[in-house]
Design a protein around this nucleic acid. Structure first.
Lengths: 353, 353
DNA sequence: CAAGAACGAAAAATCGATTTATCGATTAGA
DNA sequence: TCTAATCGATAAATCGATTTTTCGTTCTTG
């Protein structure tokens, strides 16, 4: 019975209107909080809404506005903690403002990124939070610009002449990592990363290098990077160690690199921190429970998400003016994977206490 | 110039119609592939579409249908690889069929789960893929049932009398883990898990216990579980070891448990597999690069996602009949964290070759 | 050659809300 | 007392598509 009732068409604003004995326009006004409605009628409307369990159809409600109450979010991937948390945060913030978040993964492809954006444009989203695959100069940002979309760029960006940007302060965090490693006496450090084209990866690299050289001009910094894929990085790293290179510390500019480094250490039977130290950009839950715990740079996901949404909604509401470029401070967690060099090479297992 | 042109209102179907010198209805028909249009007119429509860069507004297009071309996805969280991959897959599959996926995180709360569902119902989504927080008997599934929504339940479910279900074959995988551990000679095994109320966790527990006892009736199986939160589990585990209990292997029924087990091992200075063996349900990328690599049950994410979408769309298209309950086979990866008991207790680091 | 079938396309209704224009009734002002 | 302003509410237009209905033409067929 209730089953049958539920299965039929949902009540529309006209059903509410006829139950309350008023017009649809009046119902709309009551629900919008307009005060020019006779209290008695307002009450009857609210009663009818209650009785019919009426809820506004967001789709129909959005029909007439140029900008729908939808926010699009495009992330390079959903599989990592960082972007997972980011989507969770963004979703919550959008919901708070009565917006629906539509999230999509570009799967690290700029072509896909642009396609998704085109689809979101079809939906007339009010705004887009774009975490570009590479940087702010990709085709996706260009598309947004060309079509007059409002949006914010996050994560792998530094600044842009058309959109507000929010990202972690990579350079500052990397400088802190440099202070940590140099402070512990490391004189030969390897930096690994992907996609040097990415603005932030470059910032991390330069932030580290500048600070390290300032502290100790004689320090040797090697850099191994690879465009796009992880596998070339892995083989370059393998070659590097194969040639007999023996840095005392590795700083990985991104999570995938940290995993590659760890697996190469495994291959060679090296243990952290006795054989080599390791610090990675990007933290993950597992890093504190493994042995050794992995030192990492923690990105301020909540702050980035919340700042991005603030800036976005300001623009959605019509704010004009030059774009701002926000950098949110990171936290550097020194953990067991970092030690002083020459503390007993190849003494695997001695890291016990 | 192009800038200015792009910024103004997007062309509607009427703009296309007037440019092509036909009516809006004709444009709609051409775009829908109806063949009763004179080829000449069809061509003019296509030309106008091209010239104006016209794209159908999905919102307006969905207005008249009872079920919009939107699929809702509700996951307990986005932070883990499993659900991250799941959302990625679901999104791709929805897109393939011309549907938009709206994903939301229930953040492990049944109350939030129901609210999200209500909002999706407001959107008149065609269907919902729900990964419930606890099991198929929660308020969310009840809401779906009461409102005649079509949906599929995945992951933490076994079967339901109203909805199709798809999940990993937890029992079979756990039995395989049992064969592995018993086969290696373990006679005292600890199982840890959360939320015994969850159907799948119970299945994992029973699948293991049944198989283990069948192979060796004298085997001792201890079980530590906790409802909802991780911290009670951690302290129970700490107490357990504190009492001097010394199982030779731990089987964690879920990822969070694996992390807790690892951190407790760390605390006590135990190394896998010499001091204790460890197997976890749910695999993660890092598990193969740490030392030791962690043995794990890999859930078939792609198969679950694809099967769920197949079943869902079948229902969306009107299929009737009793709900089906699919179980997709898992893969058990034996890695270094598993050894034979008594292979040198507390000999940390001896796991080198 | 006239009535009817077939065809192609336009007009109109529809989806469910919002917003603007309109209208009737009451009150205020001249 | 008559006109004007005010108030509250309704009718109608709108958003952008789809679908049904209607309406000319052309083509058959008796």
């Amino acid at each position: 019975m209730a089953q049958q009732e539920a299965r039929q068409r949902r009540p529309s604003i006209h059903d509410v209107a006829s139950h309350a004995g008023v017009s649809a326009a009046t119902v709309s006004k009551v629900l919008a909080g307009v005060t020019t409605v006779k209290p008695e009628n307002a009450q009857r409307v609210l009663d009818a809404v209650e009785r019919l369990a009426y809820r506004v159809d967001p789709l129909a409600s959005d029909m007439r506005r140029a900008k729908r109450r939808i926010i699009g979010a495009i992330m390079p991937e959903f599989e990592s903690e960082f972007f997972g948390q980011m989507v969770t945060e963004l979703e919550g913030l959008a919901e708070q403002r009565g917006y629906t978040l539509v999230a999509a993964s570009s799967r690290e492809s700029e072509a896909r990124e642009k396609e998704i954006l085109a689809r979101m444009h079809d939906w007339r989203v009010a705004g887009v939070v774009l975490a570009p695959v590479r940087n702010e100069h990709g085709p996706a940002a260009a598309f947004m610009k060309a079509n007059g979309m409002t949006g914010v760029l996050i994560d792998r960006v530094l600044s842009d002449d058309a959109f507000d940007t929010v990202s972690a302060d990579s350079a500052a965090a990397s400088a802190e990592v440099a202070r940590m490693l140099v402070g512990k006496g490391h004189k030969h450090i390897l930096i690994i990363g992907l996609a040097e084209g990415a603005a932030t990866v470059r910032a991390r690299l330069e932030g580290f290098r500048t600070q390290a050289l300032a502290l100790d001009p004689s320090i040797r910094i090697d850099v191994i990077t690879s465009e796009v894929s992880v596998e070339p990085l892995r083989s370059s790293l393998r070659d590097y160690f194969g040639r007999g290179e023996r840095p005392t510390a590795v700083y990985s500019l991104l999570l995938k690199g940290t995993l590659v480094a760890l697996s190469e250490f495994r291959r060679r039977g090296w243990h952290c921190p006795n054989d080599i130290s390791l610090v990675g950009f990007d933290d993950a839950e597992w890093m504190q429970v493994t042995w050794p715990a992995i030192a990492a740079v923690v990105q301020p996901v909540r702050q980035i998400a919340s700042e991005a949404m603030n800036l976005l909604f300001r623009r959605v509401e019509g704010a004009v003016g030059p774009p701002t470029a926000r950098l949110e401070p990171c936290q550097v967690l020194e953990r067991e994977s970092v030690g002083s060099p020459g503390n007993g090479p190849h003494s695997g297992g001695g890291d016990r206490q």
